[in-house]
Design a protein around this nucleic acid. Structure first.
Length: 597
RNA sequence: GGUCCCGUAGCUCAACUGGAUAGAGCAACUGCCUUCUAAGCAGUAGGUUACAGGUUCGACUCCUGUCGGGAUCACCA
């Protein structure tokens, strides 16, 4: 069934009978043939050349001839330098395809009884989501799906940073300027509503600082003693002391934010299995730090602050609890990690989807967990991804260059509507179907745009250039898919019933079809690579290759003009398989397909 | 300054983890709709893979150095 495996054994035994030398079939290196050459499977000959001290091309000839004579699945071969290129025969292609065609979920593994946890999104609760969050969310969502596809049970979680000075800043501004306003009254989405007050706080603070500087106070002094800043700090202290009024307001404002986030998540089509809140885990983290202090893993300075010395691991001293007894960011991270392994004892790995700016932080965190004696610490993995830059540089909220997620999505829907109408493609769509179509196209454009790039790499986004709809894009894939569905519908209307099997007397199989079958056959490998590299871009690039190959076939070959019925049936079955794989591969990116556009 | 990441066509990205003449899309130019959806297909042009060495039969990929860009090293998150 597996051609590569079969080829390896065949080559291995060919070598054995030619050279009387045993080479394990696993040691045979095989790769797909480069486009310029005939064939689909390529055997590397260099290492054999070393062993037998013979010209690789000669070795290739010998093996090739031996294969032709002794193996019934080989069609032809050619040797180019150190490469033996092989094509398999028609029956083998058909068998290979039938194998894929008859598989319900080609490429997907059943549950293997192992569990993982993926953390992603995890925003602060003081402002709405932006483009950077989108990369994070799509990446985490996609990775979760990919890991599930290779057989893991995946727990999708986030940690919400719901506590701390940032939310107090929004609270202060709302108390001072809000006059009891709310998202309901103002008609503003909750997260944007709260974000507005966060911005207001910043403006007020700047005003105050500038006034003080004019009066001759230094900038540092002014920042430290700004009245509004002190009010925020007071609020934080009140919060930590569980002041009922403060807690009430805090809950109210966070609720607004969550309602806003939920709307966005719904639009994006992502969800979570469990949400952790920092306000619920930070005390637990503190307890664990105190435990560590007793065990003398950590040390306390004279001012009562608690530290860990990581110098012998090539890291620095790290503060764990402030001198005033309040916790810092990493304190709650320690607590959260421990809680998670307690909540889900079966998870083998915990994956943190967080930007690469926090690489040092996670190195420190994992090291701390390790010296605390948790053996799962080495199973914590920071899925680090690159930042999104604008042509002008970093996104900066102070300079108002942050690309707002909701706004971007809206714009994309607009563009997709405009595009679709220009092309006049929606004659028989009703209003509701139109809306669904625009949303799907827009979402596929933006998800694909962010996921097709290797997560590790920083990427550039130009807000002035809208995301493309042509070439290597989500809409292109959607389009290819819609074309296939249209063919399948037509076949149905013509009463062509599907009963493809290997006994089909297909006259011949052409290069376009072979290419497609080949690509379909490697889908399982691509999922495995994507899973082990934590890289949805592998899947995206694969879908693009497959779509291109199909469009080529579509262009060159007319399905319904063909006279041979069995060939028509083969081509329809092939089309059906391509549509299935495109759809399930896109699903791995969190993208839903439209059958018409 | 220490540590880490990045540098590939004008622009945005690939390159099966060391393999063939480094590939796509956008932008430019040329063809293809009376034929299954032209959001498509084919073609032309565009490269000393930042630079200099080294390892190897073979390097965008590994090693060393240089240059350029970014991140990080907080009683911020």
């Amino acid at each position: 069934m597996n051609i590569e495996k079969k080829l390896k054994t065949s080559v291995s035994s060919a070598i054995h009978s030619i050279y009387s030398h045993k080479i394990k079939s696993d040691d045979i290196q095989i790769q797909s043939t480069s486009n310029e050459y005939e064939g689909y499977y390529t055997i590397l000959l260099f290492f054999l050349s070393k062993i037998f001290s013979e010209n690789p091309a000669k070795i290739g000839e010998k093996i090739g001839n031996h294969l032709i004579e002794n193996e019934d699945f080989i069609e032809s071969f050619n040797v180019e330098k150190g490469f033996l290129n092989i094509d398999i025969n028609k029956i083998s292609w058909l068998k290979l395809f039938f194998n894929i065609y008859s598989e319900k979920d080609w490429g997907f593994k059943m549950n293997i009884g192992k569990e993982l946890m993926v953390e992603f999104s995890s925003p602060n609760t003081n402002k709405p989501l932006h483009l950077g969050h989108l990369r994070n969310i799509f990446l985490g969502d996609s990775i979760s799906r990919i890991l599930k596809a290779v057989g893991y049970k995946v727990h999708r979680v986030q940690i919400i940073n719901d506590r701390g000075i940032h939310i107090c800043k929004s609270m202060v501004a709302w108390i001072k300027f809000g006059k009891g306003d709310s998202p309901e009254k103002s008609g503003i989405k909750g997260d944007h509503f709260v974000g507005k007050y966060y911005v207001l706080y910043q403006e007020e603070l700047n005003k105050e600082i500038n006034q003080k500087i004019k009066k001759g106070v230094t900038k540092e002094e002014a920042e430290k003693n700004a009245q509004i800043f002190n009010e925020a700090k007071n609020l934080l202290i009140k919060w930590e002391n569980r002041d009922p009024e403060t807690i009430k307001l805090w809950k109210k404002m966070n609720k607004w934010v969550y309602e806003g986030f939920d709307k966005t998540y719904e639009t994006l089509g992502v969800d979570f299995d469990k949400i952790y809140y920092e306000s619920e885990t930070y005390l637990y983290g503190k307890k664990e730090v105190e435990k560590g202090l007793k065990k003398k893993i950590f040390f306390q300075k004279n001012d009562n602050s608690i530290w860990v010395d990581l110098n012998k691991y090539g890291l620095d001293n790290k503060l764990l609890v402030r001198s005033d007894g309040t916790s810092v960011y990493i304190t709650q991270d320690i607590g959260t990690a421990i809680l998670r392994f307690r909540d889900f004892p079966k998870i083998e790995k915990q994956i943190y989807t967080v930007g690469n700016e926090q690489e040092y932080h996670f190195k420190v965190l994992f090291k701390i967990l390790e010296i605390q004696g948790f053996d799962w610490a080495k199973e914590c993995y920071h899925l680090s991804y690159g930042m999104i830059d604008l042509p002008s540089g970093k996104m900066k909220s102070r300079e108002g260059t942050v690309v707002d997620a909701d706004k971007l999505l809206e714009e994309m829907v607009h563009i997709s509507e405009k595009r679709t109408k220009e092309l006049g493609k929606i004659k028989d769509f009703n209003k509701n179907e139109q809306k669904l179509l625009f949303d799907k196209i827009a979402l596929s454009a933006i998800k694909y745009f962010l996921l097709k790039i290797d997560p590790k790499k920083p990427m550039l986004f130009d807000p002035n250039e809208s995301i493309d709809f042509q070439g290597n894009t989500g809409p292109f894939i959607q389009y290819t898919y819609a074309r296939i569905i249209s063919i399948l519908e037509r076949a149905k209307n013509k009463g062509i019933k599907e009963d493809f099997n290997t006994n089909l007397n297909v006259k011949s199989i052409n290069e376009f079809e072979k290419k497609i079958v080949y690509l379909l056959s490697i889908f399982p490998d691509k999922i495995l690579v994507a899973a082990s590299d934590f890289s949805p871009s592998t899947i995206a690039n694969y879908i693009y290759d497959l779509s291109k190959a199909y469009n080529r076939f579509y262009q060159e070959i007319s399905i319904f003009k063909e006279e041979d019925n069995e060939t028509i049936l083969f081509r329809i079955s092939l089309s059906k398989s391509v549509s299935k794989i495109i759809s399930s591969a896109m699903k791995l990116l969190g993208i839903n397909m439209t059958s018409k556009m």
